[in-house]
Structure formats: C-alpha cells, structure tokens
Amino acid sequence: MTTHDLTPTPGQTIGPFFGYFNAAEQVHLPFEDGDHLVPPADDRAIQLTGTVFDGEGTPIPDAMIEIWQADEHGDIPKQDGSLIRDPFAFTGWGRGTTDNVGTYRFTTVQPGATDEGKAPFIHIVVFARGLLNKLHTRAYIPETEGLENDATLSALGDRAETLIAKRDGKRLIFDIHLQGNNETVFFSYPGMDYPKP
C-alpha cells in the first residue's frame, strides 16, 4: 500500500494510438456502439455532434470524446452495460472519436434537469494527441429552463456562448475549440492541478 502519498497521479496524453481506425476491428479504446447511447431509430434519439479544432482552426482528427449525462427525465443512470449495449437500457455514457475531418457524433437523448430549475447539460471530456491532460467541458441544451440565470454561465460573460449547443432539428451542434478566439470554456474542479508555465 502506498496510501502515505495521496497526491493524484499525473495524467498524460492519450497519444495517437488509442484507436485502430478500422471499423471492422476496434481493438483499442473505441468499441462498437460506443457513440450510440440509444439506437438511432429510438423515438427519443437526438444527435450531439461537432468538430474539434486546434488553435489555427484546423480540425483535429485524432481526438477521443466521452459524454456523461442524465436521461430525459433528469435521472442519473446507474445501469451498467455501456461496453456491450442493451438497446433498451440507457447508461448515460458514451465514447467516440473524431473522424478524418475532426467531427464526432453521438446518438443520445436530450438530458432533463437533475435538479429543479437547473440548466441541463451533457458533460464532455476531451482527450487528444498533443493534449497533455484531459479537458472537461459542458454542452448546455439551448432554450431550456434555468439557462438564463445559471450561476456558472453568468460568471462567464460572453464566453458562456461557447458552452451552449446550437439546435438544428434533431441535432445539437457543439464545436470544441482547444485554443484561439473561440476557445471553448474548460472547467477545473476541486483537487485538480493545471499548471501554467
């Protein structure tokens, strides 16, 4: 036991080799239906999609995105089986990778509010080659109760816009800019350390 040292273990980049890039043989982190939290034919299905960009606006084709969210009623899933999906069970978690042009796609449901009056969002964590540690962000759902007076969004001023997905029919579009003028807001939570030079 090494419990005398409880300083968190450092993160490292996911590197380039986390996915085989061959749909027939997903031998590394991506897995079949990882990006389908519900089947596309499900009545409730929406798509969460977007492109991940670097500081020059170039799409990033080697990022891995995970989402974690409440179900359509705002209940927090406690169901296992994300890796071998039961199409009738909602686990709330999905994993996808960006394609050759930097786009990710999830089929999921629109989350409800976990607490009354709170703005619902889909939590997103970003990993990529060149990104030395994970980054957390939130895709808030447009035109929902609680957005207007959400304390976190209010504190962000103009930058809050980067966190609100855009609706296009059954699609929610949420681009992620790791750097630059439109840089997405990323969050740090208690106990995290993101040292700067």
Binding site: D54, G55, E56, T58, I60, A128, R129, G130, L131, L132, L135, T152, A155, L156, R159, L178, Q179, G180, E183, T184, V185, F186, F187, S188, Y189, Y194
Partner: peptide, 10 residues
C-alpha cells in the same frame, strides 16, 4: 496548438 490559452474556469 492544442492547449487552451485562457484560464480554465474553476
């Protein structure tokens, strides 16, 4: 080109 330049929001 793949690191945020703005402070992370605590």
């Amino acid at each position: 080109l793949r690191h945020p330049t703005k402070d992370l929001h605590h």
